[in-house]
Simulated assay, not measured.
Amino acid sequence: MKTLLRHCLLAEVLGTAVLMLFGTGAAVVEEQTHALGHGGVAAAFGLVVLVLIQSLGHVSGAHVNPAVTLGFWAAGRFPGRRVLPYVAAQLAGAFAGSALVRLIATPGSTLGATLPAHDVAQAFGIELFLTFWLMLVILRVTSSFYEQGLLVGLTISATVWLEALVGGPLSGASMNPARSLAPALLSGHLTAAWLYVVAPAAGALLAVVTNRLLDLRPSPEA
Rank of each mutant, 00 (worst) to 15 (best):
K2N: 13
T3W: 00
C8Y: 00
C8T: 13
L10T: 14
A11D: 06
A11M: 09
F22M: 13
T24E: 09
A26S: 14
V28D: 00
T33H: 12
H34N: 13
H34L: 15
L36K: 05
H38T: 08
G39C: 07
G40V: 04
A43D: 00
A43L: 15
I53H: 03
I53E: 01
Q54W: 09
V59H: 03
S60E: 04
A62G: 05
H63T: 05
N65R: 08
N65I: 06
L70I: 01
A74S: 03
A74P: 00
P79L: 09
G80H: 08
R81F: 10
A88E: 04
A89F: 04
Q90M: 08
A92F: 08
G93N: 07
F95V: 10
A96H: 03
S98A: 15
A99K: 05
A99Y: 07
A99F: 10
I104A: 15
A105W: 02
G108V: 08
G108R: 03
L111W: 08
A113N: 07
A113R: 01
H118L: 12
H118K: 09
A121G: 09
Q122R: 12
A123M: 08
A123C: 09
F124T: 03
G125W: 01
G125T: 09
F129P: 07
L130S: 11
T131N: 03
F132S: 01
W133H: 12
L134N: 01
L136F: 04
R140D: 09
R140C: 09
V141A: 04
V141G: 01
T142F: 00
S144E: 13
F145A: 13
E147G: 04
G153K: 00
G153T: 11
G153S: 08
L154T: 05
L154S: 08
T155A: 13
I156V: 15
T159E: 03
V160M: 06
W161V: 05
W161E: 02
L165Q: 06
V166S: 11
G168M: 04
G172Q: 03
M175F: 14
M175L: 15
P177K: 08
A178C: 12
P183E: 09
A184E: 05
L185M: 15
G188I: 14
T191W: 12
V198Q: 10
A201W: 05
A202T: 14
A207M: 05
A207G: 09
V209Q: 11
V209A: 15
L213I: 14
D215K: 02
R217A: 15
P220D: 12
P220E: 13
